[in-house]
Each structure stands twice: as C-alpha cells, then as structure tokens.
C-alpha cells in the first residue's frame, strides 16, 4: 500500500537588493489575506518573515531592490537560475529607485563626500533595474507597490493567468473615484497623465499632485505634459525635479528631467 502523494504547495521566495524593504513588507501588510496566501504557497525564503530559509529551486521569486554592486549582479543571476517565475516589485527593482539619482552624478564624488573612508565602498557607477541584468517575467511598479496589486500578481502566478495590472494613466483612477483634477482645477503640477495607475490615485485624492512614484504609463507623452507644467507656472528646475525622484532612472522620466535641468536649453 502506498501513501497518498503529497502535492506540495508552490514555493515563494522574496529577495532584497538595494532597497528600503517597504515593498516586501507590503506582503506582510496583507493582513486580511495573509493566511490565505500562506495557505496557498510555501514560503521558502523571506527573511523579513522568518530566519528559516530553504534551498531552491523556487516556483515564484519576488525581487525587491536595484542592482548597485558587482556582487548584486552575481546574486540576481543565481536567483534567476533558481526561479521558474521572477517578478520584480517596486521602483528600485523596476527602474533603479531613488538611488538612481547617482546616475546623474559622479558616484566617486558622492562616496568621497559621505564616507570617511570611501576606499571601503565597493559600488557600481549606476543603480539599474533588475531587467537590465536578467530576464524578468513581470514588473510590478510603485514606491511602494500597492498590496492589492501584489496579491493580484501572486494569485495570477498561482492560477497561471495574466495579472490584471493596467498600464494606463493615474488620471483614469482619479476620474473613476470622482477626484477633481488638481492640474486643471487648481493649477497644481501633477504627473498623473504620464504616470502608471495602481496606487488608486492617492495623492490627488488628498489635493496633491502625483509625483510619479509608479513610473511612466504605457504611452507617456512627457514632453507635452512638461510644456503644460511650464504654462501653469512651474519653473524649469521644478519640472526637472518632478521627473527626477523615485523613477529617475526610467528612460521617459530621465529624458524630460535632463531636458529641463538647465535654464538655457530645451523645449
């Protein structure tokens, strides 16, 4: 007589690179759904949750953080090798994060200014997204990510379907929830028209402009929006700064930020 086959639950691993841990903590923020999640998957590696870690391979890996050191490059390659599905979570992992501000500067000057012994610092000149180094199966944006979107991605991975994660503008979320447009009705600089939805339009709902923490939408006409921001009275320096925050490394935002960072040139 044979024992019934034990069908093991899919294994889930959570990895950290250069980041603040906020995105992986979004998983623990899923208080109402957490029991269902841990019932559906076997958490094999998640050091914010438990010291008990298992060896790979892993069915699903969630990767937080950007690549900033040579060691990071080796580590992400090994994780990719060990993972069936690799999902990057958050602005750091998908565009290089706030630390991609170094991409606009000389990292050697930074380390010399900040550290008493910069010779101990071993870092790359640029902060780059995971997708520049290994193939990524899905990118979940946001700084931090939205936990409902994270649940949707995990559920889709478990079901074997495409996640329902729209690539359209934040404006659609404002209009859907009945938030009055802060750009049109108040003249507040807002990146919502070029920023990917997913946050639920949090900032405009509290009367603030979107600062683009989900990065560029599918088709982001940043140059047209930047011209309009100038028209409503935003200074060139502020337009440049607006595009240079948590997704400063994303190509569409980077290009506009560079266009407006000098008082002389551009559009």
């Amino acid at each position: 007589m044979s024992l019934p086959t034990v069908v093991s639950r899919p294994t889930l691993a959570v990895w950290k690179f250069a980041s603040c841990d906020g995105c992986q903590l979004s998983l623990l923020d899923c208080e109402d759904e957490l029991l269902a999640v841990v019932g559906a998957v076997q958490i094999a590696h998640f050091t914010e949750l438990s010291r008990a870690v298992q060896e790979g391979p892993f069915d699903v890996s969630l990767v937080e953080g950007s690549i900033t050191t040579a060691d990071d490059i080796e580590r992400i390659r090994a994780i990719r090798q060990a993972s069936s599905l690799l999902v990057t979570i958050g602005a750091c992992a998908t565009s290089g994060g706030i630390q991609a501000l170094r991409n606009y500067a000389d990292v050697g000057e930074y380390t010399a200014t900040v550290y008493a012994h910069p010779e101990y610092i071993s870092t790359l000149a640029k902060s780059t997204p995971i997708s520049e180094h290994v193939p990524v199966d899905f990118e979940l944006r946001g700084c931090p990510i939205d936990r409902h979107q994270l649940l949707e991605v995990i559920t889709a991975c478990l079901t074997g379907r495409r996640p329902v994660i729209p690539g359209h503008s934040v404006c659609q979320e404002c209009k859907g929830r009945g938030t009055v447009c802060v750009l049109v009705a108040h003249g507040t600089p807002c990146l919502g028209p070029v920023t990917r939805a997913g946050c639920g339009a949090l900032c405009p709902a509290v009367d603030r402009g979107c600062y683009g923490c989900f990065g560029p939408a599918d088709t982001a006409n940043t140059s047209s929006l930047a011209r309009q921001l100038i028209t409503v009275g935003t200074s060139r320096a502020d337009v440049s700064r607006l595009f240079r925050t948590f997704n400063a490394g994303s190509p569409a935002f980077r290009e506009e930020s560079l266009t407006y960072d000098s008082p002389e040139t551009g559009r």
Binding site: T159, R161, V164, S169, C171, P193, N221, S224
Partner: peptide, 27 residues
Amino acid sequence: SRCLACGNCTLVCPTCFCGAVSDTTTV
C-alpha cells in the same frame, strides 16, 4: 504631439461608454 493619451477626455465625456471587462481570481 500634444495628446497625453491619458484618457481624461473620454472619462469626462457624458457619452463615451467604452468599458473593460476583466476576470480575476482570489487566493
């Protein structure tokens, strides 16, 4: 060259009716 493709015009339009239907599963 000017259009943001943000969709605001269609969302405030009192007659634009397009909808997207999506199926999702829960854990």
